[in-house]
């Protein structure tokens, strides 16, 4: 635990230095990476540990984003309180949904959350106070003056996002290494055996779903911060797809892997842009190429390294040492 804390502090310090040395665009992408890392950790906890598939983490992010924006705009609260509200709102929402769906086996939860992901952005259009298609503004304000004139808005985003990501990943990693993490793995491995050992498997699954939703909601608020806006267009089905892809790519049950997954998710649109320019810049290609790359990566990784690249490396090493 103390080692882990030390590691996170060290990581934060390194990121702080790196953030000072690179240009604006990279700093902004750094904020996005932190956001994805939070979001992916919610999937690692849910799918990798408790063995439930949710296709609706994008929708949970939307809940968090809207909660944060509504709190900030209507109550004029400090920023940290808005982020806190995003966690709270999505946790409550997750608990309600989880109590009904998470008790059920795989396909039911997957289908229910998919329905949510398809429907929730559309719902936002139908209620006036959610701002319709345009969404609502979410402005965390300028960086404090004591950081000096040079301190840019993007760097401020990066600092907030990374700070939140470090804290959230630290807490998540502690949860995963605690009794709860072990219990979830036991349920995933063999729920009957786990129940015989005295685990209340349904309750633990709902708990996993609730915590996962809370983390996703926080990620949603961070996403809203980086684009200064909460709108249905930011939390599409494609976002949920991308999250699942990032988690599978990095190894669905590996928390350190989320950083790799997050980097890949930010790199894909960049890469797709380059390719699209080569192919002659048509609008079709620019809109749909990132999705194509994401899906191809997802399919390839789920077929060939369903448990993440780490597993294949381990197998390889075992083979070598056997010789």
């Amino acid at each position: 635990m103390r080692k882990r804390l030390l590691f996170f502090i060290l990581l934060g310090w390194v990121l702080l230095i790196v953030g000072d040395r690179v240009d604006e665009l990279r700093v902004y992408q750094g904020a996005q990476i932190s956001m994805y890392a939070i979001a992916l950790s919610s999937i690692v906890l849910l799918t990798g540990y408790s063995g439930q598939v949710s296709l609706g983490n994008g929708a949970m992010m939307a809940v968090g984003g809207y909660a944060a924006a509504l709190t900030l705009n209507n109550l004029q609260t400090p920023i940290w309180f808005a982020f806190l509200m995003s966690i709270l709102a999505s946790a409550i929402f997750g608990a309600l949904l989880g109590a009904s769906a998470a008790r059920l086996s795989g396909p039911y939860l997957a289908g229910t959350t998919l329905a949510l992901a398809v429907g929730l952005p559309a719902l936002a259009n139908q209620f006036g106070f959610l701002g319709g298609e345009q969404g609502i503004l979410f402005d965390v304000g300028f960086p404090p003056e004591r950081f000096g004139e040079e301190f840019s808005q993007y760097k401020w985003f990066f600092w907030i996002a990374t700070f939140i990501a470090l804290i959230s990943l630290f807490i998540t990693s502690n949860i995963l290494h605690s009794r709860f993490g072990r219990t979830w793995r036991a349920i995933r491995g063999n729920s009957l055996a786990a129940e015989l050992a005295g685990v209340h498997s349904a309750r633990m699954k709902v708990l996993a779903f609730t915590i996962s939703s809370a983390i996703a909601g926080l990620a949603g608020a961070v996403l809203a911060m980086t684009i200064s806006l909460v709108s249905p267009g930011a939390y599409t089905l494609s976002l949920s797809f991308a999250l699942v892809t990032g988690a599978v790519l990095a190894g669905i049950s590996s928390l350190p892997g989320v950083m790799l997954g997050a980097v890949i998710l930010v790199a894909i649109p960049e890469f797709a842009d380059v390719v699209a320019h080569r192919l002659g810049d048509s609008e079709k290609v620019i809109t749909h190429l990132p999705g194509l790359i994401v899906s191809v990566l997802l399919i390839l990784s789920v077929i060939f390294t369903p448990n993440g690249p780490g597993e294949n490396l381990r197998k390889h090493r075992k083979k070598k040492s056997a010789h």
Partner: peptide
């Protein structure tokens, strides 16, 4: 850990693939 969830995730990937291929 992925054995249980792989098929569902795979069909999801396929949905994404077809959507973006049709879009292209």
């Amino acid at each position: 850990p992925a054995a249980v969830v792989a098929p569902v995730i795979a069909t999801l990937g396929l949905l994404g693939l077809i959507r973006s291929a049709v879009g292209l």
